[in-house]
Simulated assay, not measured.
Amino acid sequence: MDTSAMIRANQANWDARTPIHLASEFYAQEPDAWFAPHEWDDLGPLAGRDVVHLQCHIGSETRALAARGRG
């Protein structure tokens, strides 16, 4: 399978999962709920830092990090 076919297959797989994720209460959590209190403590102040959660899945963790960085 060529690379473009693999990319299309991956996109189709995630597109098929989207309705399940949208309907789930799990993904409706408040941003701070994605990390345990000790994880926030370990990260320290985020204002002025560029951070990203590389295995974020749907963006919730990255959005939580960004919200902390604005505070």
Results as ranks from 00 to 15, higher is better:
T18K: 15
W40I: 02
A16C: 07
D50K: 14
V51C: 13
G69F: 00
S24H: 08
P19L: 07
G71S: 13
I58S: 04
H53V: 09
L22C: 11
R63S: 10
W34T: 03
A16V: 08
R49N: 01
N10F: 14
E39F: 02
H21M: 10
N13I: 12
A64C: 00
I20Q: 13
D32Q: 07
D15K: 13
D15C: 08
F35N: 01
A36K: 11
R49F: 01
R63V: 11
P19W: 07
Q11S: 13
A16T: 12
W40Y: 03
G69R: 05
R49Y: 05
W40K: 02
H38A: 12
E30R: 06
Q55V: 07
A64I: 03
G71C: 04
D42E: 11
G59L: 08
A47N: 06
E61R: 11
Y27M: 03
R70K: 10
A16D: 10
C56I: 06
L43K: 00
M1P: 11
D42H: 04
A47H: 07
E39S: 10
G59N: 09
P45Y: 01
Y27L: 01
S4P: 02
W14Q: 14
W14D: 09
G44S: 00
A64T: 02
P19V: 09
D50Y: 06
H57L: 08
E25V: 08
W40T: 05
A9Q: 15
H53A: 14
A47I: 03
S4I: 14
T62E: 04
R70M: 09
F26N: 10
P31D: 00
Q29L: 08
M1D: 13
G48Y: 05
A12T: 09
E25Y: 03
A67L: 15
I58L: 11
L65W: 02
A64M: 01
I20R: 14
D41S: 08
A36H: 07
P19G: 09
D15A: 13
G59P: 07
L43N: 06
S60A: 15
R8C: 10
D2F: 05
R49P: 02
H21I: 09
S4H: 13
M6K: 15
D42M: 12
A28L: 10
R8A: 15
P19R: 09
A12E: 13
A33R: 02
A16L: 12
Q55R: 12
D42S: 09
W34V: 04
L46A: 03
A5V: 11
